[in-house]
């Protein structure tokens, strides 16, 4: 894929030069498809998430998907997917804590799309780690503001650390699988 890159003179952005344009990546996935995958991810989490826990943390399929979508499709698509996915999570039991964080994660990941490729293992894993932390921090803040002091900082912080590990592992696997799939095509 790198051979297909056309290194044009990029315009300046806030944190440095834009990434080269990837002309071989093809069209970005359709939003309806992404939304379908997001719904499936949330359903899987809501139905089987308890079976995949590691020291109290659950892998967040939606976080990985939203981060990847943001990197691949930009802040608008990432933000909308985060908004809808987070709203669905809250509707299925989040209590209003997930939607803002997930929207932020989608949007912020989208801002990174101007500087990194969505198939960069390092970029995706780092973005997923950051996204997980941002999402949990916002969720914690919303919970504390909305429901008062719950004294759950240590529990959430501990679970977040393990969730970062789980999500990053999943993200790495997803990127490797996508690379393999693209290479086969």
């Amino acid at each position: 894929m790198n051979a297909d890159l056309v290194r044009s003179a990029p315009p300046r952005v806030l944190f440095g030069p834009r990434r080269p344009v990837d002309t071989g990546a093809g069209a970005p996935p359709r939003f309806s498809m992404l939304l379908l995958v997001a719904v499936a991810a949330v359903l899987c989490q809501a139905t089987f998430g308890h079976a995949w826990s590691l020291r109290g943390a659950h892998v967040s399929l939606l976080t990985v998907l939203v981060v990847w979508t943001g990197l691949r499709c930009g802040p608008t698509t990432g933000g909308w997917l985060g908004l809808l996915g987070g709203a669905l999570e809250d509707a299925l039991g989040g209590g209003g804590a997930d939607v803002i964080g997930m929207t932020l994660v989608g949007f912020l990941s989208g801002l990174l799309s101007s500087r990194f490729f969505a198939d960069s293992l390092t970029a995706v894993v780092a973005a997923v780690a950051g996204g997980t932390i941002v999402r949990n921090a916002v969720a914690y803040a919303v919970l504390e503001i909305a429901y008062g002091d719950r004294g759950s900082y240590h529990r959430i912080a501990h679970a977040t650390a393990w969730e970062v590990l789980l999500n990053c592992t999943l993200a790495a696997l997803v990127v490797l699988a996508l690379r393999w799939w693209v290479d086969r095509r």
């Binding site: 709203a87 209003g96 932020l104």
Partner: peptide
Amino acid sequence: LVFVALIIVAAGVSLLEIDAAK
């Protein structure tokens, strides 16, 4: 504009959920 719109909608959804839960 997109960011503000998204955050407003997300905050609205969040408040709706929090209000119902409370």
